[in-house]
């Protein structure tokens, strides 16, 4: 197991059994491969990595994510964001941008583009983690070791999972969680996408590193 480094780890995430197996670059490539090559139009893909908190409880936290966006940008545009909310999103994005590129760097025009609902949902996901037994979609998929496929606005809103409910609010119509070695691959789309074994096989092929 890896050693804890409080300067690098998120509050309660102290160990990760799989961090040495996953290199960030290959995770990013695999997530990209998964949705860029797909027939269906997925908005994003996230790898939730399994780890443990101090008490030994199983936890899923951010491993990596790839945001593709929507072919039809209008679909992910500001269904919920008021002008004040949009200003808030831009402010956060500017701060994150200077965190990454250094505060001395030139202001970046792209940062001042509207932050769409699905972009915001993706960004907020980076701060989240889930207990495996808490009933949410990623935990459910990991715990039962079987895929969870939720599509259609009513099913997302009423799935009993806070993350799915949030996804629905931010314009998603399909959310899928597929278990893999050491974690769960989650995909989301602003379109209704029917379950396909093709995608699940692809996840098994790309993410079962062991």
């Amino acid at each position: 197991a890896s050693t804890a480094d409080p300067t690098k780890t998120h509050h309660h995430m102290i160990s990760s059994t799989s961090s040495q197996l996953f290199n960030q670059e290959t995770l990013q490539q695999r997530l990209q491969q998964l949705i860029e090559g797909a027939r269906e139009s997925w908005t994003y893909a996230i790898f939730w990595q399994s780890s443990y908190d101090y008490s030994g409880a199983s936890l899923l936290g951010w491993g990596d994510g790839y945001y593709k966006g929507d072919a039809d940008k209008a679909k992910s545009k500001l269904k919920t964001a008021s002008a004040a909310e949009q200003e808030h999103r831009k402010k956060v994005l500017r701060e994150l941008n200077s965190l990454i590129s250094g505060s001395a760097s030139a202001p970046d025009d792209a940062v001042d583009e509207e932050v769409t609902d699905t972009e915001w949902f993706f960004l907020v996901s980076m701060t989240q983690s889930f207990f495996v037994n808490s009933g949410g979609l990623p935990g459910q998929a990991f715990f039962s070791n079987s895929p969870v496929w939720v599509c259609g606005p009513e099913r997302l809103a009423n799935s009993g999972c806070e993350r799915a409910r949030q996804g629905h609010v931010f314009g998603l119509q399909t959310m899928v969680c597929i278990p893999s070695a050491n974690g769960v691959v989650e995909l989301g789309s602003t379109e209704v996408i029917a379950q396909s074994s093709d995608l699940m096989n692809k996840v098994r092929f790309l993410f079962n590193f062991n």
Binding site: T9, Q24, Q28, Y67, L99, A110, E119, L123
Partner: peptide, 26 residues
């Protein structure tokens, strides 16, 4: 954001970079 963990930082950098590319291509 000081304690923003490494994995998230890498994800964020790639998200921002691709966002910049999308804005330029639009």
């Amino acid at each position: 954001y000081v304690a923003f963990p490494q994995a998230r930082k890498a994800s964020l950098a790639s998200f921002l970079e691709k966002r910049k590319q999308r804005a330029m291509n639009a």
